[in-house]
Amino acid sequence: MLAIINGTILTMAGAPIPRGTVLADNGKILQVGQDIKVPVQAEIIDATGKIVMPGLIDAHTHVGIMEEIYRIEGDDTNETTDPVTPHLRAIDAVNPQDLGFQDALAGGVTTVVTGPGSANIVGGQMVAMKTHGTVVDEMIIRFPAGLKCALGENPKRVYGSKKMPATRMASAALLRETLAAAQIYLAKQEQAGTEGAKAPDRDLKLEAVGRVLKGEIPLRVHAHRADDIMTAVRIAREFNVDLVIEHCTEGHLIAPWLAKAGVKAVVGPIISNRAKVELMNRSLETAMALFRHGVPFALMTDHPVVPVNYLSLSAALAVKGGLPEEEALKALTINAAKLLGLANRIGSLEPGKDADIIVLDRPLLDPRHRVEKVIVGGCQVIN
């Protein structure tokens, strides 16, 4: 049993609790509040003068898949032999020994979403996982956490000289073609179950896409430019699927349209230069524009594009762009958890949720802050 006492608790589910207590046992939070009786057997952390809050969530990374200190040896980000690979599973590439996980913990990040890169129109299945553990299987929170797709410059650059897609039209066509094939596959399966027809042979590609069509997971589409974002919105509407826009760099230019379409976004990386043409209109005000128009969003580092331990700094820059501080904190905690469909487990300090907790010497958005303690699933991993 663990008791964190006397700290200012940011539950992310209500008002801050001064001189509060968080009581946890067996990896779960038992109580949060003031005047909580602490059992004598509890291990006590005195957080007097400190900030206590939920572990941070980085909603889009390549931690464990794109290992920083390697080239070919540790880079399993993009399967550049085929533009449509929905059957790839991030969990088969994640190396828990990647130094990125240590960086995540040092930055207070206790959950990441990691997955394939953006070379392919359909890249594969993403995973939401804790940043502490020995093997992937014990770190998984949700798998699959979404089907990674990509529009814009990247697929064109990788495949255009060899095969489709060489144009944005071809990129959209390949995505539609894949979704349509999965519709037919699901229809044949259903027909076989009700009419005695022969079931189709198992197809791992179409099976993965079928999870999107059945509403089990979202279509998570890499799109920077406004026109690419709206292409993703158009296709999602055609196939009636849940859509998350990854990066959403020009989202501030079309925020009312995104709100009307009911899509979600994972914004970032915020600490970035104009490395390619589609980043021309990058802005610190993107998150604020989405917030103003009611578009649900989380923030990302895209690690190792930006080191995962700079997630809080990314949020601080979004505040510089006009985002209210409370909303910036939510984008790293409870709102990120909601976007991922994991708010029942992570994102806030409430009874019954995972005991993923960080202790800071000062507010998170102050760039001088230090993460002094990190608890993942009730286990102190930085103390």
Rank of each mutant, 00 (worst) to 15 (best):
V376N: 02
E285L: 07
F143N: 01
P256L: 06
V267D: 02
A47L: 05
Q183C: 14
I382K: 15
E73N: 08
D58K: 01
P16C: 08
I184P: 00
L329R: 11
E190Y: 10
E325R: 15
G377S: 04
E216Q: 14
A337G: 04
G152H: 06
V295R: 04
E350L: 12
V306G: 00
L151A: 06
V381E: 10
E138Q: 15
K338D: 00
V113I: 15
V308I: 15
L279Y: 10
L105D: 08
K37E: 14
G352K: 06
I17T: 09
A42S: 15
N309D: 15
S161G: 06
H87C: 02
V241N: 08
D302T: 02
P200G: 09
E327W: 14
Y159L: 04
A180D: 12
G108A: 12
L243E: 06
A3L: 04
V374H: 03
I235V: 14
V113E: 03
E79G: 00
I141H: 06
T286P: 01
R274N: 08
I91N: 00
V319Q: 10
S312H: 09
V266D: 02
I217V: 15
A187R: 07
I57W: 11
G152D: 09
V127L: 02
A150V: 09
A42Y: 07
N6M: 09
G49M: 09
K156R: 15
A170W: 07
A315E: 09
L204T: 14
D366M: 08
V38L: 07
Y310H: 13
T110I: 13
L175D: 06
D103A: 14
T77F: 04
K205F: 13
R225Y: 08
F291S: 12
H252V: 02
L186Q: 11
R211S: 13
L147N: 03
G27A: 13
